[in-house]
Design a protein around this nucleic acid. Structure first.
Lengths: 238, 238
DNA sequence: GCCGCTAGATTGTCAGACAATTTAGGGCGT
DNA sequence: ACGCCCTAAATTGTCTGACAATCTAGCGGC
């Protein structure tokens, strides 16, 4: 695709606009977003007909969407009981964090190996923005900044498989973020670690990048009281 | 595949037997097996009505199953063109191998941390069986031995998430195994590495276990000519 | 008060239909 | 003959409605 040099609007987004997305893809996207944002509580049953009505789609369509979300680990399809929002135990969350640490380490390694100059620039920009938001303790700004930083990282690694798995793990763990005190005393340490990741990638030091990314995740996890969060989720719904 | 549960073995396995599987689960299982075994060629279109007839299920059911397999990375659902058996490029395969290496490293780490005495016994048994099959160059025996060894490893790590992701990555890479010369000059080296993994786990040496597992995967990959295999897959079907 | 049973709710699965879209084949101009 | 546009067939995307199988809860009997 050679780019046509058109003025303002087209230049803004080079990402391919999937206007022709099928209905089911939209359903999957919306449900996933809803689950990640916690609009459904963990453990809550998702009665098919109700959800169908709310989304205004047919049952076969919804079931297809739910199958996909089950494979992504966001819902559980209990036979003859129907879809239930997946509830992570503290142990599973711990394991997923460990998994995330090594995969994100590999992602950072790939970034150090493959990032283009533009990738590096974007990564630097979003790292600094995130750190600024963190140090300002501006909760409202932290979430989108974190999101953009993460997307920049996943873009820079130039690996579809790694990015996809990380997104998935991240989505599964989201039920622990929304309900946890995210910003606490770790701002300074966290900022330093983010810088360490960035600089290692810029330096093309693969081992350092991998290690820094792993360290960051493990510290971020330690920050959270997984057991308390899991219990909270467990109490939320029967 | 339909084995009747023998009474005496009930005490042996405490795992819950899911006799009451729904039709769709069977469809997913069978299709996945077919894809992993290469009964469908990479790039081949899977026309819904044809597959429906062959499996004797309705189209909505098949579509549900395909959604799940898409999320697992085994097929691709191209809008308005239908399901296509996913074809891995050499690059994607390389990336998946890197991913597998670190995840399997984490798996081995968990084994060293969590394996019970029975897990260790089973692991040792299947490691030795696999090595024996390898050294005998008995291709027919290697595949099931490898399978059992792998299952023993995944059981021993006692982590659902890690085991599930590894199974998935493994399934996606299977299209490269079936068509590659698996047994070659690497038997001795491979055997030594398998022993190293086993002994590190028995020694409860997490770092050594992780490293040994990663080394094994990376060497196993180097063994394969991914580009040649990818080209072969590419030629197979339009 | 506890236990079994029936009725209601919900899921599992199918059949058939039809519009939207892609793909392939054929006619037409040069 | 060659390439291009256009129509038709093939295939997917999606819906409606239905019915049996299964789970769940409330009711009545002991």
């Amino acid at each position: 695709m050679s780019e046509t040099p058109s003025p303002d609007r087209l230049t803004a987004s080079l990402t391919i606009e999937r206007v022709t997305s099928t209905l089911i893809d939209q359903v999957v996207t919306r449900l996933r977003a809803a689950l990640v944002e916690g609009l459904f509580r963990p453990g809550e049953r998702m009665v098919e007909r109700d959800v169908c009505e709310r989304l205004d789609v047919s049952r076969p369509l919804l079931r297809e969407a739910l199958r996909q979300l089950e494979a992504e680990g966001l819902v559980e399809l209990v036979p003859h009981r129907g879809p239930v929002v997946k509830r992570l135990s503290a142990q599973e969350a711990t394991e997923l964090y460990d998994l995330m640490a090594v995969v994100e380490g590999e992602c950072a390694r790939y970034c150090a190996r493959r990032a283009t100059a533009e990738d590096l620039a974007a990564l630097r920009t979003h790292t600094l923005a995130l750190i600024e938001a963190l140090q300002a303790r501006d909760t409202a700004r932290i979430v989108p900044c974190k999101k953009r930083y993460y997307e920049a990282l996943l873009t820079a690694c130039h690996s579809q498989p790694i990015a996809a798995y990380l997104r998935q793990i991240s989505a599964r763990l989201s039920q622990f973020w929304s309900s946890s005190v995210r910003v606490s005393g770790r701002v300074e340490e966290g900022s330093a670690e983010l810088i360490a990741i960035l600089e290692a990638i810029e330096r093309r030091d693969e081992d350092a990048a991998s290690l820094a990314a792993q360290t960051f995740i493990r510290h971020a996890r330690r920050q959270q009281d997984l057991r308390a969060a899991a219990d909270r989720n467990a109490r939320d719904a029967v």
